[in-house]
Design a protein around this nucleic acid. Structure first.
Lengths: 346, 346
DNA sequence: CTGAAAGCGCTTACAG
DNA sequence: CTGAAAGCGCTTACAG
């Protein structure tokens, strides 16, 4: 039967002009209460919905945000870092709370991003999510900046625009990890993860860790460091290299939980007990951290707050409001992998 | 400087009409090759992008699909089933391959869904994803049907419209699980999961399992069955109940991996060895299945193919094309939790 | 408080 | 092969 109803259909049925319908539907106080209610009743009855394309076109605003999730090019195609998946969840919810729709797209870091969501008016702004190589990354951000695109990004800093970034206090997280490992009686450490300047988040974690150890008189030179991107298999391989190198350690701090899980797998294969022989500490608190056996002690990033902040700050940017808050404080989560008493419930 | 360029700006610079610009940009063969290239060059130079709101309005088509991910109302708010997260990934990619944008939204099953994406012209169709209670679910589907919304859904069947569903052959999956458990020498089974008619997917898995066992002369009455929704803690609790009931078993088939992980946690707490004393089998093959210790043997659902099918079939529905394929064949993944030789690489 | 009118930026018959 | 014109369905000055 019905071709979709328009505001003209409602106007006709209500005996008012189409402009009045438009106002009434947006709850304009300008329009008489009776008229307003009558119009709204008819709209409901016809199951009328404002045509977003028409209203966006007219308003020059889409009430839509785009999320670009980019992955490390070396990662297995089908596997997305669970940490980002969890962020995706909280971003989606934050969008809903703010009356925004969310367009989602996965990109390879190496690609030319399809960052034209704002140019084509599909979205009012962009959220960038992913651990990436900072160097590659920077160019693309510069381009977005040049096009005056509204965007925020997780983790990596935008040159000259700290307000575009939302991130965890990674240094503090690393520090907490170091403290905990020290408190649980460990003295011989290794770090696994990429701590180069290409990975500013990981290297901040490393630095916090080192700074915590310094308080116990341990120097950076005493802490062997093995590179790994944020995957299970990279952690596994780095651990093998670490063990084969013959250094004697009793604790490993990993730049991410995914790495830590790979580390534990390697240790288990080699018959080394966690935490009795070697303690393992992760970072992120992805769901798998609690599934692991022993439960992985880690530094939690509050993804729920992060998603909220990402969306709110982007909206502020779009509306030319000042940004006040963009740091998330990490939290120590104690399970069993470092030998402290963990609560079995988690 | 620049307000965003429009097709009129390009027309002016190219010395042609705006209609010609529009045609040239869409690679219409109607327009002279030279003109076309000239127009396209200017567009590139101005960094021109077609305004989607305007073109959607005019074409009455959005080239956008909406994904509604709804969760079991009893599940922890922040935790989305990893299986669906993986589906989300493959759906996103399938959309990209088909030139569609993807709007994502999380909903509570109990809510009134915001399923008005198509009414408001924000999307051409909807993908429904989530394990839900079939009974609740059915009403909402009937409503979508009545509004002639284009949609496909995962798992649950739409009354009278089997072509709207894409699902795994759950019966076959359950059958494979039963066979494997039999082949690894087990004889005393339990099933954990909700096998009521409210969960058609789970009950099909149960049925396949029972049918496999029948070949070894085992009757349904010999297989105790404990209810659980698809979460770790539900699996844990159901296992406690199972053990406390005093029945003697040597294998548990779980309706999902999340349940299985909870089962293994409970067994470990009780000092029961997997697989030596009790074998555990999951369903889904979420990432945590391979992280678990021992590695969880399970039935894999091919999320990549599922995502592809969901998107392709929805597009076919929108374009009035016939749907030919909507079944995914599950696959046995052998790890260590059933006592068979698993490959340590996975 | 309400209405007539313009216009957002496209696509696509229609005419040549 | 190209152009002039209509129209997609809204929102919002402008006028009363």
């Amino acid at each position: 039967m019905k071709d979709k109803a328009t505001s003209f259909d409602i106007a006709y049925l209500a005996g008012v002009s189409q402009s009045t319908v438009s106002r009434a539907l947006r709850d304009s106080p300008q329009v008489n209460k009776e008229t307003r209610e009558k119009v709204q009743a008819i709209a409901r009855q016809l199951n009328y919905k404002v045509d977003k394309n028409a209203s966006n076109l007219r308003k020059q605003r889409s009430s839509t945000l785009a999320l670009l999730l980019f992955e490390d090019p070396t990662t297995d195609e089908s596997l997305i870092n669970p940490f980002f998946l969890s962020m995706l969840g909280s971003i989606t919810r934050a969008c809903a709370r703010n009356g925004q729709d969310l367009l989602v797209s996965f990109q390879q870091l190496s690609d030319d991003w399809h960052a034209d969501y704002e140019d084509s008016k599909k979205a009012d702004g962009i959220i960038l999510l992913g651990y990436g190589d900072y160097v590659d990354y920077e160019e693309k951000l510069a381009k977005l900046l040049a096009q005056q695109t509204h965007f925020v990004c997780w983790g990596a800093e935008v040159l000259g625009h700290p307000e575009f970034t939302i991130r965890s206090n990674n240094w503090q997280g690393g520090y907490l990890a170091g403290e905990h490992l020290l408190n649980t009686g460990h003295r011989h450490f290794a770090f696994i993860g990429n701590a180069s300047e290409g990975s500013p988040e990981f290297s901040a974690r490393y630095q916090g860790f080192i700074d915590a150890l310094a308080k116990a008189g341990i120097t950076p030179q005493q802490v062997p460091h093995f590179d790994a991107i944020s995957t299970e298999s990279a952690g596994d391989q780095a651990t093998a290299a670490l063990l084969d190198s013959g250094v004697s350690i009793d604790a490993i701090f990993c730049a991410s939980d995914l790495i830590a899980i790979g580390v534990m797998r390697c240790l288990k294969r080699r018959g080394i007990n966690v935490p009795e022989q070697i303690a393992v500490m992760g970072f992120d608190d992805i769901p798998a951290a609690s599934f692991a056996s022993p439960g992985l002690s880690t530094i939690q990033q509050d993804t729920s707050k992060a998603g909220e902040l990402l969306v709110n700050n982007l909206l502020k940017l779009i509306n030319n409001q000042p940004i006040t808050d963009n740091l998330i404080e990490p939290k120590l989560v104690v399970r069993q992998s470092c030998g402290a008493a963990g609560n079995s419930a988690n």
